[in-house]
Amino acid sequence: MSSSSPPTTTDEFIKGLWRENPVFVQVLGMCPTLAVTNSAVNAVAMGLATTFVLVMSNLAISAIRRFVPKQVRIVTYILLIATFVTVVDYAIAAISLPLHKALGAFISLIVVNCIILGRAEAFAGKNPILPSLADGLGMGIGFTGALLTLGVVREVLGMGTLFGVALFPAAFQPWVIMVLPAGGFFTLSAWMLVFNALRRRQRALSEPA
């Protein structure tokens, strides 16, 4: 940070979308990424729930960062994160019971999503409120986007629908495997390849040999 100019709030927001994308680059939060992406709706709901928790915990942690002694910092973070997750859990159940059922235990499991504690420890605990908000929002949207890319592929191929709307004529035989657990692994693996290839090309273009 010595030679280049300090990152702006916009930079903190942008980095989560692509350069430090939590799923494809940092390989964090794999459990929900694979588990709830069998339909696009579930993927978006999970992404938004995680984004909410991420933003709130980043905000809260950044706001209290000066008052928290180092020894109890992780405990305090987890306490805050668990609180926001509980709130989200009840909110989803109040908004839509079927959605709450579809996401199941994975809403509560946001607590142990490494992305959230990771951002708290690596960013929000050391930075002012505004950049922390941008960081949380960027990471959250990057996470939602990654989930959506998986959810769309799996739903279109596995059920022949997108957001519940049928895309193909009735003769289309859906690839059932895509909505099964195995399909989650395969889809993520394929996307990883695509992103690796894209990033490699980008690097090759920016550093002429």
């Binding site: 390989v27 099964l180 195995a182 395969f186 693996s189 990883m192 390849l193």
Partner: peptide, 21 residues
Amino acid sequence: DLVKGTAASLAVAGILSVAFM
């Protein structure tokens, strides 16, 4: 090189998952 690492592990996990079905 492109396949090495996470992508390969995930593909293997997928095959294992099919086997467990």
